[in-house]
Design a protein around this nucleic acid. Sequence first.
DNA 1: CATTGACTTAAACACTTGTTTGAATCTAGC
DNA 2: GCTAGATTCAAACAAGTGTTTAAGTCAATG
Lengths: 226, 226
Amino acid sequence: MKAGADIAAEADVAGGRQDTKEVILDAAEKLFAEKTYSAVSLRELTQAAGVNLAAVNYHFGSKDALLIALFRRGAIELNRARARLLREAEEKAGGATPPVREIVAALVLPAIRYSFTSTRLALYNQFVAFARGDGPAEAREMLDKEVGHLQRFALSLARALPHLPQHEVYWRLHFAMGVQHSLYTDMKRLETLSGGLCQLDDLDAVANRVIDFVTAGLEAPYTAKG
Amino acid sequence: MKAGADIAAEADVAGGRQDTKEVILDAAEKLFAEKTYSAVSLRELTQAAGVNLAAVNYHFGSKDALLIALFRRGAIELNRARARLLREAEEKAGGATPPVREIVAALVLPAIRYSFTSTRLALYNQFVAFARGDGPAEAREMLDKEVGHLQRFALSLARALPHLPQHEVYWRLHFAMGVQHSLYTDMKRLETLSGGLCQLDDLDAVANRVIDFVTAGLEAPYTAKG
DNA sequence: CATTGACTTAAACACTTGTTTGAATCTAGC
DNA sequence: GCTAGATTCAAACAAGTGTTTAAGTCAATG
């Protein structure tokens, strides 16, 4: 049985090999993003991580549990960063509503940072498919909690865009998430489309681009039908 | 050996059972979208399609070849529809450049239609992962050809948005594709986020929403850095 | 130093995977 | 009506899957 894994986390960091649990998570993050959760075998995964085959089942219980732990690690960090930025923007605005552009920045910046430093976000869709499919109820609950975090942004945007009906705000927030997704899926397509002209190199430039696009989309005039 | 499969395609349509090849493609389209290419076994797939286990290998050669054929069927139809709409918009504009909004409509409308009638588009990301991963060169070539079709839209948009440098046009076209993707991935999130308020029910309304958002994003002022 | 408990390891387990086979069935064409 | 070729079918195949086991290693504790 395991026990002190959490306490003795940073056992021999300088020694070269970090905590096994985290080594596995890192390797899984990379491989699941490159291929697919179900396309990556535990043998391939553990070999890439440099750990024994049984390590995954020992430390996480099962392959499914590994995916859940992996998603949890990423979701917590991401939502924490988003919430902090949104709070800062709200404080800066005093009692008033922050401008749309700053709400968008709070929503989008953490994800953009991840796009530059890791493949962490790329497995979101994988996890959704897993959760909706055969995945356990625990996975579905995590997705629901994820939605809960987005509600704060929906609220803020609704206040900043009073000319829009509530459901339109939801739709446009959804589209904004789609733009965000485009940063860690299909980047290859953009690179070949642009002949190598467009790449994830300058974080500030990319961030500005995304924020410009999304802000304009959110602020677009509302053309109700007939 | 097979031979007359293509000619005798519509053998007994009225009899109840359509061509086996297409029954398999339809079932695969549905299942691959719901779960994942590698998460769907041939046994599950053939059972859902009501055909024998060996039918896939007989008609397509392998599971991989089935995925490729599936993607090809969808890509051809989609690109054909897009190209037609773009051509019509250009003809309507005479020699001049069509307005951004109509270019966007040509790009987006066919995909939106598919989102309402089938799960066809949902496997795009799956296919990308497959092609970049262990997939055969044939798959990668298909993706490149896909990019080629997008070039026509990049060109049209560049003409309609002369104030933007070329690479910025590419980026924004990329974002537009991201918005499009949001229609067939994560719709569940939007539904729970909005408490069931937002759904894929009224095609024209959704189309207008998407076109409004994307057009505004594309036409956003260009804020070059430094 | 011996012992405990967390961790690692190699081997085996039961099971599912995609694919192949060879016989059975069906369908035109002479 | 019979033959030839396309299609279907049940059964088997080899390879790979996630998981479990039991022996082994190691560091800290008493």
